[in-house]
Design a protein around this nucleic acid. Structure first.
Lengths: 115, 115
DNA sequence: AAATATACCTTGACAATCTATGTATTTCGT
DNA sequence: ACGAAATACATAGATTGTCAAGGTATATTT
């Protein structure tokens, strides 16, 4: 299915861009945030997230910076969404709405919407 | 992501089971029906559909029968949903609702819900 | 007569995700 | 004080769903 492809490709990136649109965040934090906000529905894998973050950065949709945690040896890599990223997010949001609506139409409306 | 997998795996089968829940249909008709009802959003591939139909039949979610088209050499393979198929459909529908809700929550509500 | 639509099917390639693995630091419980 | 679990980054190989392409055949439209 045509749109399925775009959607499948964009499903996780959509969520990533979605949370980053509110402000910079580091990888582990993204996982926890998505987990929390989806009420445990999404348990994003590290092996899924990190390659996506790198890919989005390569595409210029995100930028990143290393931040040293105060009084600690630990470093975190914070990601910020770019203007291009915001445009992509808008596009993917629209695609998601289209997809969502289409599935619900085929299934006979949302749950039991009016006939 | 955990549920993503179920969904990805179940996305097209969900639509197939969804349309077959209304009555028996043959492959080509399923493609056209989904295309029409999704308003051209889904253009299901034959290479995607037929293997799925066969798999669903193997799992006992569908049954099929060949029907000779009246006054023609053409045969069509009609598929019917089974009781087991209806249960599966109910499960997948529920999973879809959960998924949909979770994405919308992470994205901050549907489209531009109240901040 | 040729092109398009209908109708079934399979195979090989590709792309997205997962599991597993690796390294290192920090915190919590006992 | 020690071990387990959580935090935090990353990559590689296997799995899986979908697609493009190819194949066969009939029916309809131009």
């Amino acid at each position: 299915m045509k749109i399925r492809k775009e959607l499948a490709k964009g499903s996780t990136p959509l969520l990533v861009l979605g949370v980053l649109a509110r402000g910079e965040m580091y990888g582990y934090q993204i996982i926890k945030t998505v987990e929390l906000e989806s009420r445990q529905v999404f348990q994003m894998n590290e092996g899924t997230l990190y390659p996506i973050l790198h890919a989005l950065e390569m595409e210029g949709l995100l930028t990143s910076r290393w931040v040293q945690v105060e009084g600690s040896a630990r470093k975190r890599k914070y990601y910020q969404i770019t203007e291009k990223g915001r445009k992509e997010l808008a596009d993917e949001r629209a695609a998601w709405d289209t997809y969502q609506t289409a599935v619900n139409r085929v299934l006979g409306g949302v749950q039991n919407a009016a006939t």
